[in-house]
C-alpha cells in the first residue's frame, strides 16, 4: 500500500503490549503517533522505558505491533520493509558486532549481504573517523569506536532515511561534536535523520523538529523552537541593589515576581526595557537583566513530569501520561 503523503515516517495509533509467560503485561506503546517529514533532523525524546526503542524496533520490523499503522518512505511498514530497506540506514540501541572481525571486515560483510559496492566501506570508515583503525578487531574497540562503526554501517547504504538510536552513546566530547557535524552534513545532503537521544542539549543543537514520548504516548511534537516557545513564560532574571523594593515596584505593576537570594525572577514581561525604566525612575540601577528562555531539558522534564526531587528518586514508570501538545506538525 502506498500512503498519499510526503512524510518519510508516519506512525498512527501504534500500540504494543509485552506479555510474559506468567501472564504479566507491560504497555510499551499506547496509541503513539509520529510524523517525520523529508529533510528534517527529527529528535525523538522520552524518559527511560517510555517506548522510544520499542517504536524504532517496531518501525524496523523487529517487534510486531498489536495495532496501528506505520509507513516508511511512503510504503507500509513492516510489510514493505524489504523494498525500502536499501534506502534506510538504522542503528538500534548499541549494536553488537562480531568481536573477532575487524571493523573493515564487518562492514565488508554487511556490504556483501546488502549488495552494496565494496568501495563504500572505505568511504564510510573515513566519514566516521575509523579509517586508520579499521583493521583492528572490534572487540578491542572502545564503546565510542563501536558506536562510530555502527553509524558507519548505517551509512553504508547511502540511505535516504537514517534512524539513529542513541548515536552519541559512549562518544567523547570530540566524537559528539563530530557526530553533530555529521548529522548536519547528512541533512544538508537531503537525508532525513531521526535521532533518539538522552543528551537533550545535543538534540536542541542538532534537531529542527522534535517528538517527545511519555509512557507510550506522544506528549509534544513540532519544530524545536515552537516546542520551547510553548513554555516561554516571558521570565527575566533581574539583579538590583535593593531586592525588596524592586519586588514591590514590579509586583505593584501586576507582574508575578519571585524573590531569590540575590536576584528576582519576573514573569510575563512584554518589553524588558519597561523594567529598567520603572526601576531606574526610582533610583534602582539594574546590574543584570537576562531573559530566562526555556531549554529542551527543562521542557522535557516538565512535559514528562520527571523533574528529580532531591531525596525522592523518580521511578521509571512515574512519567506523566497527559494529552498531546501539538505544536505545529504538518499532517
Amino acid at each position: 500500500m502506498v500512503w498519499p503523503m510526503t512524510a518519510v515516517i508516519q506512525i498512527e495509533g501504534l500500540r504494543k503490549t509485552f506479555r510474559t509467560l506468567r501472564g504479566g503485561a507491560r504497555v510499551a506503546l499506547n496509541g503513539f503517533d509520529m510524523t517525520v517529514e523529508a529533510g528534517q533532523i527529527h529528535g525523538f525524546l522520552g524518559p527511560n522505558g517510555s517506548g522510544k526503542t520499542t517504536t524504532l524496533r517496531t518501525l524496523l520490523g523487529l517487534v510486531r505491533a498489536d495495532d496501528g499503522r506505520m509507513s516508511i518512505l511512503g510504503r507500509t511498514a513492516p510489510e514493505a520493509l524489504p523494498e525500502v530497506a536499501p534506502q534506510v540506514g538504522a542503528i538500534v540501541e548499541s549494536p553488537q558486532f562480531f568481536g573477532n572481525f575487524s571493523g573493515r571486515r564487518t562492514l565488508r560483510l554487511l556490504a556483501r549481504a546488502g549488495g552494496v559496492p565494496a568501495e563504500r566501506v572505505e568511504a564510510v570508515l573515513t566519514q566516521v573517523g575509523l579509517r586508520d583503525r579499521g583493521d583492528e578487531r572490534v572487540k578491542g574497540y572502545s564503546l565510542g569506536m563501536k558506536q562510530r562503526l555502527a553509524v558507519a554501517s548505517a551509512l553504508l547504504k547511502q540511505p535516504e532515511l537514517l534512524i539513529l538510536d542513541e548515536p552519541a552513546n559512549g562518544l567523547d566530547p570530540a566524537g559528539i561534536r563530530e557526530m553533530r557535524d555529521l548529522m548536519r552534513q547528512l541533512s544538508s545532503a537531503g537525508i532525513t535523520v531521526l535521532v533518539s537521544s538522552h543528551i537533550l542539549a545535543e538534540i536542541q543543537l542538532i534537531c529542527d523538529h522534535v517528538t517527545i514520548v511519555s509512557r507510550g504516548q506522544r506528549v509534544a511534537t513540532g519544530p524545536v523552537a515552537a516546542v520551547l516557545s510553548g513554555f516561554d513564560k516571558g521570565e527575566y532574571r533581574v539583579r538590583v541593589g535593593d531586592l525588596d523594593r524592586a519586588a514591590d515596584v514590579l509586583g505593584t505593576a501586576g507582574l508575578p515576581v519571585t524573590k531569590n537570594e540575590d536576584h528576582l525572577v519576573v514573569a510575563d514581561v512584554g518589553d524588558p526595557a519597561w523594567i529598567t525604566e520603572q526601576l531606574g525612575r526610582r533610583g534602582m540601577w539594574v546590574s543584570e537583566l537576562t531573559p530566562l528562555t526555556p531549554d529542551l531539558e527543562s521542557v522535557f522534564l516538565q512535559l514528562t513530569a520527571t523533574t528529580p526531587d532531591p531525596g525522592a528518586p523518580k521511578q521509571v514508570d512515574e512519567a506523566i501520561q497527559p494529552g498531546t501538545i501539538d505544536l505545529g506538525v504538518q499532517s
Binding site: 524496523l60 520490523g61 523487529l62 538504522a90 549494536p95 553488537q96 562480531f98 547504504k157
Partner: peptide, 14 residues
C-alpha cells in the same frame, strides 16, 4: 544473544 541477528535483519528484513 549478541544482537547480531538484529543487525542483519536491519539490512535484510526478511
Amino acid at each position: 544473544t549478541s544482537g547480531g541477528m538484529t543487525n542483519l535483519l536491519l539490512w535484510r528484513p526478511q
